[in-house]
C-alpha cells in the first residue's frame, strides 16, 4: 500500500476506448503504469492510437472500459468531481468558445474550486493567479482578451490557468500542436522547469517525439501491439522506440537518440 501512495498516478490493467450503450470499442488494453511526483511524462504514439483517450481517462473526464486508475493512491472513482478538480487540471486542444474573457479572468477561472459561491477572489487566489502569470511569462498579457493572442501566447495562458488551479497533476493534450519550433521548445522548457520546481506531475501527449525524448523523464509509448512505459534508458535498451512508427518511414537511431526519416534505397 505504501508504494502506491507515493505514486501520483497509477493504472492497473486499464482498458481505454469508447462506450456507447452496447457497443464497446477498445483502443488500448492492459495499461499498467506508475508515475511519480515531479515527473515530466510524454505520451507518444501515432495518430489515432489513443493518446488523447488515455489522457482523458486519466483525468476522469472519460470513463475507462475496465481496469483502475489511482490518483494519489485512491481509486479515481472514489473522488467527487469537486475533489478531483483540486487534484488534476487540464490543458486541452479544443478551441475555446469565443467569449470576451480577459487573460486575467481566464486564468482566474482556475481558482473556481477554491472560491466562494459567487466566485470572489481572496488574497490567496490573486497571489496564485499572479504566480501562475509570472511562471508562464504572461503577466504583460493580463488585460488583453484571450482571443487576441497568438497561439504560443494562448498556450502559455492556458498553462497558467492550469497552474492557478493548484493541482498536483497537470495533463496537457498536444500543447505544442499549432506552434513553431521556437515556441514549441519554449513550452517544453517551461513544463520541464515547472515539474522540477513545483514537484508537480506533468503529463503531455505530443507528436514532437525528438524533443520529448530529450526533455521528458518518463514515457508512455502507445504502439499497435502494446503500451510500454519507462524512462529513456530502459526504453532504448529494450528497443521499444522502434515500435512507435512503421520502420519503412521512420527509424529510431540509438546513437543519436533521435527518430530519423528512413532513406529510400
Amino acid at each position: 500500500m505504501s508504494s502506491s501512495v507515493t505514486n501520483s498516478i497509477e493504472t492497473k490493467m486499464l482498458h481505454i476506448g469508447y462506450q456507447q450503450k452496447k457497443s464497446v470499442s477498445t483502443i488500448q488494453k492492459n495499461i499498467s503504469i506508475q508515475l511519480h511526483k515531479g515527473d515530466f511524462v510524454g505520451i507518444l504514439g501515432k495518430n489515432g492510437i489513443g493518446k488523447s483517450t488515455l489522457l482523458r481517462t486519466l483525468s476522469g473526464v472519460q470513463d475507462a472500459i475496465s481496469g483502475e486508475v489511482f490518483i494519489e493512491g485512491e481509486n479515481i472513482q472514489s473522488y467527487s468531481l469537486k475533489e478531483l478538480s483540486s487534484l488534476i487540471s487540464l490543458v486541452l486542444t479544443e478551441r475555446l468558445p469565443e467569449s470576451q474573457l480577459s487573460v486575467y479572468e481566464l486564468v482566474a477561472l482556475g481558482r473556481q474550486p477554491y472560491t466562494n459561491w459567487i466566485g470572489k477572489l481572496e488574497k490567496k487566489d490573486t497571489e496564485k493567479i499572479n504566480w501562475a502569470l509570472e511562471q508562464t511569462e504572461t503577466m504583460s498579457l493580463a488585460n488583453r482578451h484571450f482571443n487576441e493572442l497568438s497561439d504560443g501566447q494562448l498556450q502559455r495562458v492556458l498553462i497558467a490557468r492550469a497552474l492557478a488551479q493548484d493541482t498536483q497533476i497537470i495533463l496537457l493534450d498536444e500543447p505544442t500542436a499549432h506552434l513553431d519550433m521556437h515556441h514549441t521548445i519554449k513550452i517544453f522548457k517551461l513544463l520541464k522547469k515547472l515539474s522540477k520546481e513545483t514537484n508537480k506531475t506533468i503529463i503531455i501527449t505530443t507528436h514532437e517525439v525528438n524533443l520529448a525524448i530529450n526533455s521528458a523523464d518518463q514515457f508512455i509509448l502507445l504502439t499497435d501491439k502494446e503500451v510500454i512505459a519507462g524512462n529513456k534508458k530502459t526504453l532504448i535498451e529494450s528497443n521499444s522506440f522502434d515500435h512507435l512508427f512503421s520502420s519503412e518511414i521512420i527509424n529510431f537511431n540509438t546513437n543519436l537518440e533521435q527518430f530519423i526519416v528512413t532513406k529510400e534505397s
Binding site: 473526464v61 478531483l84 475555446l96 482556475g110 474550486p113 488551479q165
Partner: peptide, 9 residues
C-alpha cells in the same frame, strides 16, 4: 467549454 467546466468540478 464542457470539458474544462467538468475539470473545474
Amino acid at each position: 467549454g464542457e470539458n474544462y467546466a467538468k475539470s473545474l468540478g
